[in-house]
Design a protein around this nucleic acid. Structure first.
Lengths: 369, 369
DNA sequence: CTGAAAGCGCTTACAG
DNA sequence: CTGAAAGCGCTTACAG
């Protein structure tokens, strides 16, 4: 079954659900004031200073005293006030992630890597969404006011420009699309070798016998044209190495399947097009859909390769040949970098070798010709 | 082209990329100490108390004094220390989200709704991932120690049990799968009417002429059996209303396409199976893939309906008939509830009417028979 | 309209 | 091993 446009078949049949409120609308149970170290001290018959020693596992506390304090902590349900700790000690152990997206696969996976690393190191993690409407400097200021470190997921122009605006004296690190050539000194940052990965993917298509490879770009955070990121460069390099003049790249209008669908419709009209590299898997999904609507079969008529290896890439039909990225690893490494700036006695481990890999599935194959 | 198993075609061709480190490995620029209100006061020739009035837009400040202070703030690059503010004022304006997942569509979209609402209200948002390994009570304690509110995305058992363990005196709200029948008083919470949505989706399949509808379940956070959540109940109710004895539900072993694929293979073996409702779109994707591998075409041989309307549902082939959920709305409403507990003078608005809607696409159709 | 005092809940030296 | 003091950077009453 084929339809002209995807949207044609979307129709709201029925609106049946609703949100309900649970719980009492009254103020709720009395917010009993939390116990402080003085309360604990009184209960244990010691000075509050001794309580401080116990909760910080300071060695110089008599065993019996410690027991008594711990018992008091238990019965009073004492939890050390993190705010007071931060103010008094000057250590914050928190990082705020600045990102313009949390749902796209690359962003979400990077965030997850950051979260795991932060949790493992005892850091709390904040998230602040960057939007074109909000004032960038205000957003950065308020994030920096929390005292902890700043982490920028700089895959897009908005985030990249946020990174540029972080004041010099605010501890900050980033995951970026490509190394920066502008700023001096550059911010500590990690990146994957997108350029080489795109080159390899393109070379793979050429080896399969395709005369040329078209490219549907993600908008890039670097370079002067929105379509000329490292992935585009790798694609271009592979074609040029084979003596092929690269066609005009397409896309660069967004990250989602809709954009891929629109570009795919255009490409499907040209019978000469037999191989398409896409800047991410969502774009690839849209391209596949457009080719399907145009009656061109994949991979028999056209080969498609995506980027990122999102979870669904393996289960769509045809399953998607794509480039796997280690976003979580990038998140982990970036956190280590930031931690190195935050803690004087912490040295980030040697950079993890994070590979990208071309995952061969069904959507790319040899040309018929 | 059809392959026996999806995984067969996965093969790492090449590992080409790597992570690099940018930036100096030396400590970086001297972390010049931030200006305090006393520094500003001295620069402006006023007391620090007056500075406090200015940054809090207190009315009783002479215009000229205000100007002078504002100028000093500007030149010194003063930013109010959020930690000290929180400690002194007792207001925290922060919420920590407890969730066991950040990448699945439902979770990510809810998180986005929470983030938008929090940002709009001037709250900062923290995220803490719940894992089966970590001690739940410790995780909750450390989240609560930050002083702000707690928000639980309680779609799964782990998160639901975290919600149950939040101490009574910690301000907390939740997005849940279904209203709680256990706890008294119940926590303020919001939910969508999954039961009715599943009932409507199942009824739709019956109206198309299918004799019965099979169900591939998500693991549920409520009920005694892992497959008997509100979505299962709605499915069951629709069948029973039509005088049909429900078959045994399947799945409930996870949320991802892999689980759907495994269950789909089993279902594909039974020629009597012509209609399948899935607990989410990822499961549905796996089921579609399994049916494809078994040579059963969708919707001609088998109809499939998903749940959630994830972004890719519209672009896979066949495009997925599914139930659209307003996760972002749930997040917004839940935040309002929590804010109501946090601020004495804030009354949450009337509950938004958040609809669910059956989105008709290609994957479900009339029976051949 | 502006300033001096006390305190938020902790920690870090400094005494004993 | 334990306690009394001073201070983190702000705010909230309390004076003038």
């Amino acid at each position: 079954m084929t339809v002209d446009t995807v949207a044609d078949h979307n129709r709201d049949m029925d609106v049946t659900g609703h949100t309900s409120l649970g719980g009492p609308s009254d103020p709720g149970p009395e917010p009993r004031k939390a116990a402080s170290i003085r309360d604990v001290a009184q209960a244990a018959g010691v000075s509050y200073q001794t309580v401080s020693r116990v909760i910080n596992s300071h060695p110089n506390v008599r065993e019996e005293t410690r027991k008594r304090v711990e018992a008091a902590i238990e019965t009073l349900g004492f939890r050390r006030n993190a705010t007071a700790f931060a103010l008094a000690s000057g250590v914050t152990r928190s990082v705020t992630v600045l990102t313009s997206n949390t749902t796209l696969y690359g962003y979400a996976a990077t965030l997850q890597g950051l979260e795991e690393a932060a949790r493992g190191a005892g850091y709390s993690l904040g998230v602040k969404l960057l939007t074109p409407e909000d004032d960038l400097d205000r957003t950065i200021s308020s994030a920096a006011a929390d005292g902890g470190g700043l982490m920028v997921i700089g895959f897009d122009r908005l985030a990249a420009s946020a990174l540029d605006r972080v004041p010099e004296n605010v501890p900050c690190a980033a995951v970026v699309e490509a190394p920066s050539h502008g700023r001096t000194p550059p911010r500590p940052a990690v990146w994957a070798d997108d350029r080489e990965a795109a080159r390899a993917a393109t070379a793979h298509l050429l080896e399969l016998g395709h005369r040329t490879v078209h490219y549907v770009a993600i908008p890039t955070s670097v370079g002067t044209r929105r379509s000329e990121g490292p992935r585009a460069q790798g694609w271009r390099a592979a074609l040029e190495a084979a003596g092929i003049t690269p066609p005009e790249p397409r896309g660069a209008k967004g990250w989602d399947a809709r954009v891929g669908y629109d570009e795919g419709r255009e490409l499907a009209r040209d019978p000469e097009v037999t191989a398409i590299l896409c800047g991410n898997d969502d774009l690839a999904l849209g391209v596949l859909r457009a080719l399907h609507h145009a009656g061109r079969s994949v991979p028999a008529d056209v080969s498609v390769i995506g980027f990122d290896d999102a979870p669904h890439a393996e289960f769509v039909t045809p399953s998607l040949t794509t480039v796997r990225m280690d976003f979580q690893g990038l998140g982990r490494d970036a956190f280590a970098l930031l931690r190195g700036r935050l803690e004087n006695d912490y040295r980030p481990p040697a950079p993890t070798f994070v590979g990208t890999a071309l995952i061969l599935r069904e959507s790319a194959g040899p040309t018929d010709a």
